[in-house]
């Protein structure tokens, strides 16, 4: 006791944190003329009286009361937006290709992740999310990135096969049929090239094998490699269009044509698979991608 008092003697005298630290899921403002209300998870920036104007990944809520009560990073609600479109274009060009159209029926629909499998390698692209309001597209919200991968990929909407081993030289042939007519009374012949036919065809040769990567180590499944290759060949020959893309940026929308060959090179586990392809459409065209079952959204004019 000290002067007859035990002022640090009660049960809760030595609590380090006396305030409840509960989740907050309700906020109410009143009793004033409110200009701005901003909430962020950032607790490291120095004190300032300037309210941030940029929405970033720490921002939780920002109500500006500019004629509405929106406090998110979108000044629309699911009642006024019917779809969001995801588009892509090569940076520096004008033409967008619509890849996805997401219907908005509930708030959760605003947050999504989509996979774009049909971008070339070593190419800087821009992607945009575009809100659609009664047929009118809103602002294009754009971000850009340069693609990067290694080896050769053959993909469709559902499967991906990949190789970076024993890739043969890929030198596809550009085909444009023409006829040379040799007249009698002229020195020079006529070259007749009717129509717009102009496409690539070629051959891919590489080793396709199932692999698993653990950090720096790669393990190959040699035991059932023939099964993996059989599954690959079944998929190649299923009659559906594919996208072939090479890490240097070349890409084609193709059908697999002809036979599929295999050859061993020095060891029975070192098998190279060879198949032919013929280009059947424009891999950068929304309409060709849609008509060949690679995307689900059709946009007239793209």
């Amino acid at each position: 006791m000290f002067f007859g008092m035990s002022f640090i003697g009660s049960t809760n005298s030595n609590f380090a944190s006396p305030i409840y630290r509960d989740d907050v899921d309700y906020m109410e403002v009143k009793n004033g003329i409110i200009d701005d209300l901003y909430l962020t998870a950032n607790v490291t920036d120095a004190y300032t009286t300037e309210i941030p104007t940029i929405w970033d990944y720490d921002t939780i809520l920002h109500a500006k009361f500019e004629g509405d009560l929106f406090a998110g990073n979108a000044d629309f609600s699911m009642n006024t937006v019917s779809h969001l479109r995801v588009k892509r274009r090569k940076k520096g060009t004008y033409k967008w290709v619509t890849l996805f159209e997401i219907p908005i029926n509930k708030k959760e629909d605003f947050n999504f992740t989509k996979t774009d499998r049909y971008a070339r390698g070593k190419t800087e692209y821009e992607w945009a999310i575009v809100p659609v309001l009664n047929g009118t597209e809103g602002n294009y919200n754009i971000a850009s990135l340069t693609t990067s991968f290694e080896g050769i990929f053959i993909v469709d909407a559902n499967k991906i096969y990949h190789s970076k081993y024993n890739i043969g030289h890929i030198n596809p042939k550009r085909q444009k049929p023409s006829t040379v007519v040799v007249p009698i009374d002229r020195r020079y012949p006529f070259v007749i090239s009717n129509g717009e036919v102009n496409y690539y065809s070629g051959e891919i040769k590489a080793t396709f094998i199932e692999e698993s990567v653990d950090g720096e180590d790669t393990a190959f499944n040699f035991e059932r490699a023939w099964e993996y290759r059989d599954g690959f060949k079944d998929w190649l020959l299923n009659g559906s269009p594919k996208i072939i893309k090479y890490d240097d940026g070349r890409m084609w929308l193709v059908m697999v044509t002809g036979d599929i060959d295999e050859e061993t090179d020095g060891h029975w586990d070192n098998v190279k698979t060879t198949f032919g392809f013929t280009e059947i459409g424009d891999c950068e065209s929304n309409q060709d991608l849609y008509n060949n079952g690679l995307i689900d959204v059709y946009m007239d004019g793209e």
């Binding site: 629309f76 996979t115 971008a119 809103g138 990135l145």
Partner: peptide
């Protein structure tokens, strides 16, 4: 209809694909 939603592309080297994520928050 303006939105300053975030679109975040990420390069997925293993699948030669890009994942495109949206971060739209609608609070009213």
């Amino acid at each position: 209809p303006s939105t300053f939603s975030f679109i975040e592309p990420k390069n997925n080297e293993k699948e030669a694909s890009m994942s495109i994520s949206s971060h739209i928050i609608s609070i009213e």
